[in-house]
Every structure is written in C-alpha cells, then in structure tokens.
Amino acid sequence: MAMKTCLIVDDSRVVRTVARRIAEALGFVSSEAADGRAALACCVAAMPDAILLDWNMPVMGGLEFLRELRRLPGGDRPKVVFCTTENSMEHIQAALEAGADEYIMKPFDKDIVMSKFNLVGLVEEAT
C-alpha cells in the first residue's frame, strides 16, 4: 500500500520542521506550505491524506483555506487537524464548523499528534 501523505501548513519554518519530523516518524510522506494559498495549490495538484494546519498565516489563514479546501473536488477527503496557538472555545468551534476533523493547541508533541491522528483514523494505536 502506498504511504500516506501529510501536508504541513504553517508560516514558521521551525514549526514545519518539528511537525515534519513527527509526521515522518508516524510513517507519512510530508510536504510543506507556508500559507493557505500555497497549501490550496498543493491540494489541487495532489490531495493529501492528512493536513496539519496553522490558524494565523499571511496571504491566506487556516480557516479560509479549510473552507476553500472543502469546496474543492475531493476536498472532503483529507483529514484536517488544526495545529495552532489559538486555544479559545470560539476558535475550536469555528474550526469544527468549517470542517476540521481535529484540533491541536500548541505547544504540541508527538504523543498529541499521534493521539489525534489515531482518533481520526489516520494511524493505528501503537499498542
């Protein structure tokens, strides 16, 4: 079976690098985008299995990207996990309403990503 793909969308190169390491440790082939617009282009070219998505980014933010993504052909397929410092109930609810599958509040670690990926069926429990 082909390896699953994960698109990491964050304007911080440091965060993308950390997230990439975690995604690859979980068995994903990963690619990166620095804003929502670039991420949409990636999705049009090849729809990933998973998307780790920051909220605040230049050009196009995470929420706007997610709404656009879900309108694309096949855009309902990727499991989208927000990964952001925004941690208010309002932000979380808005993300879920826009079609996010899960939500991670930064700071995050491998356990949290694995736990959330497991919840949305992207990875099996390690046990």
Binding site: I92, L96, A100, E102
Partner: peptide
Amino acid sequence: VQRGMPTPLLVRYFEK
C-alpha cells in the same frame, strides 16, 4: 485535555 480526547467532546463537555 488533548491526549486521547476527541475535540468534539472537549467542546461539548468542558469549559475554559
């Protein structure tokens, strides 16, 4: 609250 907990349950059963 992030380890193991589905976010929809966090929204329904917790308050900040």
